[in-house]
Write a protein that binds this DNA or RNA. Structure first.
Length: 295
DNA sequence: CGCATTTCCTGGTAGC
DNA sequence: TGCTACCAGGAAATGC
């Protein structure tokens, strides 16, 4: 499931391909709804770049090349969303298995939801579970995507400071894991990386945010930066669906210390990792390294 | 307002 | 083999 490192990987790969392209048409292959709002506004716009905010991709759109940005294409991949450059139709057919498993030229993927026909090719949004979003809004108007408007600081940006993070933690009594998943103290951390950073910092996921000790908060801040940075370098984590734009798997899977490792040995102390549920999410901890909160 | 719970979706898998 | 039941989860909607 794409979190920040996976989305950043996709952003880096898409940017050179999409920047400067003109959208000829946006075709919807799913039942219309708020997840796919405003697509009719896309035709004729020029893509000014590919930006990322948390787990969202934002493509500024203008009426003419390098013109004023009046609209934005907002993409959230949800759990299973994939963005793939496609050949302009019609085109030749490629045998299955080639192309890194990407949809074949001339074919239409079973779970294709949106296709952008571009001046130079096309871009497919494929999303089996339809948890993703692909919509066009007026620039800066995020009423249709409220989370985008109240997203916390970028974890790898200068705004994400140990002091600011500590202050954010002090402001909530929510379980620290639920708080992180809510994107308020910092943007882009999802279920996988939440477990990883909490393990690194030795913080139990049920600890109320305001009761995370100052030292632990600093460790957590550093762990967020370190883990996300390392994962971006590995092109993210592939569990099931996530693929890069070129159909590759991310390599960070091999570096995961706790996620998906319940029952295995803690790499720090050798204890058996345990599974629990926090905020309705599967959660893995080391019962020794991450002591439960005292009450 | 703050926080918890429910809902949306489909593929994969366990169990019978 | 084929069926049902259930699980995975990001973010919005709903509930208290």
């Amino acid at each position: 499931m794409p979190e920040l490192p996976e989305v950043e990987t996709i952003r880096r790969q898409l940017a050179p391909r999409l920047t400067g392209a003109r959208i000829e048409r946006a075709a919807l292959f799913a039942p219309p709804g708020p997840k796919y709002a405003g697509l009719e506004l896309a035709a004729g716009r020029h893509i000014g770049g590919v930006e990322r905010r948390g787990k969202f991709l934002k493509l500024p759109l203008s009426a003419r090349p390098n013109g004023a940005v009046k609209h934005e294409l907002i993409v959230h991949l949800g759990m299973t969303g994939v963005l793939l450059p496609a050949e302009p139709e019609p085109s030749g057919v490629t045998p299955h298995g080639e192309n890194g498993g990407r949809p074949l030229s001339g074919e239409r993927h079973k779970h294709l939801r949106v296709r952008l026909e571009l001046s130079d090719g096309a871009l497919d949004f494929i999303d089996p579970r339809r948890f993703g979003r692909f919509l066009v809004v007026e620039a800066g108007d995020y009423r249709a995507v409220p989370l985008l408007a109240r997203l916390g600081p970028e974890p790898l940006g200068a705004q994400f400071t140990p002091e600011g993070f500590a202050a954010a933690l002090a402001a909530s009594r929510m379980a620290i894991k639920a708080y992180l998943l809510g994107q308020r103290p910092v943007a882009g951390v999802g279920n996988i990386y939440a477990d990883e950073v909490l393990w690194r910092a030795g913080v139990h996921p049920l600890t109320p945010a305001s009761r995370v000790a100052p030292d632990a908060a600093r460790l957590l801040h550093q762990a967020i930066r370190d883990v996300l940075t390392a994962s971006i370098a590995a092109q993210g984590t592939t569990l099931n669906d996530y693929r890069t734009v070129y159909g590759e798997s991310g390599d960070y899977m091999e570096s995961l210390d706790v996620y998906g490792r319940a029952g295995s040995a803690c790499r720090r102390c050798g204890s058996t990792l345990e599974r629990l549920v926090v905020a309705q999410r599967g959660t893995t901890i080391c019962p020794n390294c991450q002591a439960p909160p005292r009450r």
